[in-house]
Nucleic acid binder design. Structure first.
Lengths: 208, 208
DNA sequence: CAGCCTCCTTACCAGATGGTAGAGAGTAGG
DNA sequence: CCTACTCTCTACCATCTGGTAAGGAGGCTG
């Protein structure tokens, strides 16, 4: 018992620290001992809550994916409220994702770590993202069929957008490594590029 | 003595395997034992040639950086031979880098691994890239001063281009993870985006 | 042959890692 | 008061890690 504050939220604190560590040091580069030491607790406390390191990663991924889904759901609901066109809806989603990423840069770190081919978290992330992707894809294909969207390869477009977001993570880190200070501008630029790319690909009213 | 083929090139074989493993499994995720086992040799043979795991990574990075520099030097020489304008020269360099990346996708894996914040190889890569970047930056700033290039933040532009290349690495992996087959098209697309971006930023003759 | 050098090996180790077993402390309910 | 449950701890372990020490086999040179 730490006797300090933080009574029942050890679990959450561990998740926070794990998210940060997995995102920066990577899964292999994160040791439970170090993680615990950073929190002033013992490694076994972590294992009590999460059973194994692997499951801890899963829990971190689950929580983050939950936040992402919630954010997207919110953006979708809002853009549905106003009778927006397809393009406005797409833009709202993209902006929401970037907002989430800028609010919590650690999320990007995890995303990048987990996008690595042999990452233990990759399958878990996939299981969360796949339904989202499939849903988005179906929607896009319906809109295309209805002539409200320009015809294009929906899956490839979605994956490209996804990679762009992951790429933002690396860009932020590259910039920080190079000693460039506030990283807002390039991120906003990437967002602009992505939006332009999507618009060009999807919006029937956009110039080719 | 393996008694098989491969006499004096054990060193190169180790470098090849290490490049692949560092690029996919990461530095921490690569064990010397596994690396050696994959080559049918003993871990100590690796250590004989490279002294330590860290130095092995350095050697891998050095070799890759050497290839990159050579490729860029070649592209530069060629574009100097013809009396190309600035923009043609920039384009030649970009195309050369992408060509190298497509020829040897493993290079991208390493680049991504080593672009991670706390990566042991990060400093080594920086020491290779910094002179290149500084040189490019000086050149660009000269051209800007002479009015042959549009004025912009040279460093930010270079870092952005760099991130784009690293981003290509993640994109390829994302696509492969999603089961999308030949990854040529999206890569070419990224190259096109980068070239367009650079042209817009640099070429005085380009449309805004 | 002797000596040296290169290359790869076996033998071994200290430290870190993820994980197990079980006890202690606090709290709630009967 | 006793029991049961939750949470954290100490103690311990098997395994894997990068790394050291030393030896053997082959080739070159004196």
């Amino acid at each position: 018992m730490a006797a300090t504050e933080a009574r029942g939220n050890t679990r959450e604190l561990v998740l926070d620290a794990a998210l940060a560590s997995f995102g920066t040091a990577g899964y292999d580069g994160t040791s439970l001992d170090d993680l615990a030491a950073g929190l002033g607790i013992r490694k076994q406390t972590i294992l009590y809550h999460f059973v194994s390191k692997r499951r801890l990663l899963d829990a971190v991924v689950d929580r983050c994916a939950g936040e992402l889904v919630a954010a997207l759901e919110r953006a979708l609901a809002q853009s549905r409220a106003g009778d927006s066109g397809d393009w406005e809806r797409v833009e709202a989603m993209v902006r929401e994702v970037f907002r989430l990423a800028l609010d919590q840069p650690v999320l990007l770190g995890l995303l990048r770590e987990v996008s690595r081919p042999n990452s233990p978290g990759a399958v878990r992330v996939r299981s969360h993202l796949e339904p989202l992707m499939a849903r988005a894809r179906r929607w896009m294909e319906d809109e295309m069929a209805a002539g409200r969207m320009r015809r294009t390869d929906a899956q490839l477009l979605l994956l490209s957008a996804y990679s762009t977001v992951v790429g933002v993570a690396t860009e932020i880190e590259v910039l920080r490594a190079a000693g460039v200070g506030p990283t807002l501008r390039p991120v906003v630029q990437r967002r602009g590029e992505l939006l332009r790319f999507l618009r060009r690909s999807l919006d029937p009213a956009a110039r080719t």
